[in-house]
């Protein structure tokens, strides 16, 4: 809009100059005597310059207003983000003491109630779910403040470790790490956090897919690219942009246990390594989670 006004100003000046020439040429010869104020060409030019100046002034004012509005919006977004994080932290904090009391009193109840009382078991299961949630929230909060411990990380070894940790049957996971023409170079990163990234992604893929999951690692345009590919239920298109938000879970995941924090944690860790997480998915066909981390960051 403001740019348009600027251009309008310039065009008006050009048209004004041309019009002034036109007026001079169109005038009869007897009027060629030069009288500055009475000259219609000069008047046309003055009007054109005035219109142009007004356009430029409006353009400058609008530009200034937009910039300050944008700054205010950015500030507001940052404040909201900080507030949201603080809220999650407070939530974790406020859940901890009651949950400890519940866990401890459940132990006491179990000591006096009949062995393996169904109700106690059920309450314990639910308390454990809440405990997992508080742990996830705390981990997310930790990620904001914890300094990265950067070192040289051999990606193939790290992925082997993920497979070891997950203990998936060998026919459920296919690992394909670049070996030729040169082996995948090691990356500079926080080993344990990167382990958590790939562990979460592979865990997710296995959770939502019955078919084998592929993990591919490549070096591509100066970045480490790891893809975790499943042929599972996929993420609905409406959910796709939001699944990395804290506590958000896809509409088709409610039958599977989860805290809604895994992908948020993955994204935060990848961002802290200067990289990005990309999710592509088709409903009932599968999902590709791609982690890209630049080698130089």
């Amino acid at each position: 809009m403001t740019r348009l006004l600027g251009w309008v100003g310039i065009v008006v000046v050009i048209i004004g100059v041309l019009a002034a020439f036109g007026v001079r040429l169109a005038l009869p010869a007897d009027r060629l005597r030069f009288e500055f104020w009475a000259d219609p060409a000069v008047a046309t030019l003055i009007v054109a310059v005035l219109i142009a100046l007004i356009c430029l002034a409006i353009s400058a004012i609008l530009r200034w207003r937009f910039a300050s509005l944008r700054r205010a919006l950015t500030r507001q977004a940052a404040a909201q983000e900080a507030e949201r994080r603080q809220f999650l932290q407070r939530l974790d904090h406020e859940l901890k003491n009651p949950l400890t009391a519940i866990q401890v009193q459940l132990d006491n109840l179990q000591a006096v109630a009949a062995d393996n009382h169904q109700a106690i078991r059920e309450v314990r299961t639910q308390a454990d779910r809440l405990t997992q949630l508080t742990r996830g929230l705390r981990r997310l909060a930790d990620l904001e403040t914890r300094p990265l411990e950067v070192e040289r990380v051999a990606v193939d070894e790290l992925l082997d470790e993920v497979i070891d940790l997950i203990q998936a049957p060998p026919d459920r996971l296919q690992l394909d790490v670049q070996r030729a023409p040169w082996p995948l170079p090691p990356i500079q990163g926080d080993r344990e956090l990167l382990l958590m990234v790939f562990r979460n992604l592979v865990d997710n893929a296995l959770k939502y897919s019955a078919a084998p999951v592929q993990v591919r690692a490549r070096e591509l345009s100066g970045a480490l690219v790891v893809e975790v590919i499943d042929t599972g239920r996929g993420i609905p298109a409406d959910d796709l942009p939001r699944v990395t938000a804290e506590l958000y879970r896809g509409a088709n995941t409610h039958d599977v246990a989860g805290s809604g924090l895994g992908l948020a944690i993955v994204q935060r860790i990848v961002e802290r390594h200067g990289g990005r997480l990309e999710l592509r998915s088709r409903l009932n066909q599968g999902t590709i989670a791609t982690v890209q981390i630049p080698y130089e960051h």
Partner: peptide, 12 residues
């Protein structure tokens, strides 16, 4: 300072 935690733990 939380009675529920302290009491529960004391019993356990």
């Amino acid at each position: 300072d939380e009675d529920a935690i302290r009491g529960g733990l004391a019993a356990a």
